[in-house]
């Protein structure tokens, strides 16, 4: 018997009787409840995002880009090295040899 029994929720997590199917259904429901719609950005906010991306491109300044996901937003930090105006994509260099192509429409904030 380990110390865990007395810490946190240990007593209850070790003594409960849950059907695996029940647990699965609970987790699935919680996952679905965490689903969200993409925020609609104000025109000024979009301008700010674009300015920040262009600055990063010109001045090789590192930025953190927040990308929308239905369940959990993703953050990437790096320098914008390519801006594809036609495809509306940027290439974000995360570290040497590692990069990420990001669609500008998926970005919800840049800091």
């Amino acid at each position: 018997m380990t110390r865990k029994l007395l810490d946190g929720n240990g007593l209850w997590e070790s003594s409960r009787m849950m059907l695996p199917e029940h647990k699965y259904a609970i987790n699935r429901k919680q996952h679905e409840e965490g689903r969200k719609n993409k925020p609609i950005l104000d025109g000024q906010e979009i301008e700010l995002i674009e300015t920040a991306l262009v600055e990063s491109f010109h001045e090789h300044r590192s930025v953190t880009v927040q990308i929308f996901d239905e369940y959990q937003d993703v953050n990437f930090t790096g320098i914008v090295t390519v801006i594809h105006t036609y495809r509306r994509e940027i290439k974000l260099s995360i570290s040497s040899g590692e990069w990420e192509w990001i669609k500008i429409e998926d970005i919800i904030s840049v800091s």
Binding site: M1, L5, G8, N9, L11, E13, N27, Q30
Partner: peptide, 27 residues
């Protein structure tokens, strides 16, 4: 090795329990 078990029963008998109600516990 029974120390933890002893403490568990002692806490139960005294109603001592700081465990939270955790909705995400099954994750």
């Amino acid at each position: 090795n029974s120390d933890i078990k002893a403490e568990m029963y002692w806490r139960i008998a005294n109603g001592i329990d700081d465990s939270p109600v955790r909705p995400g516990t099954h994750q």
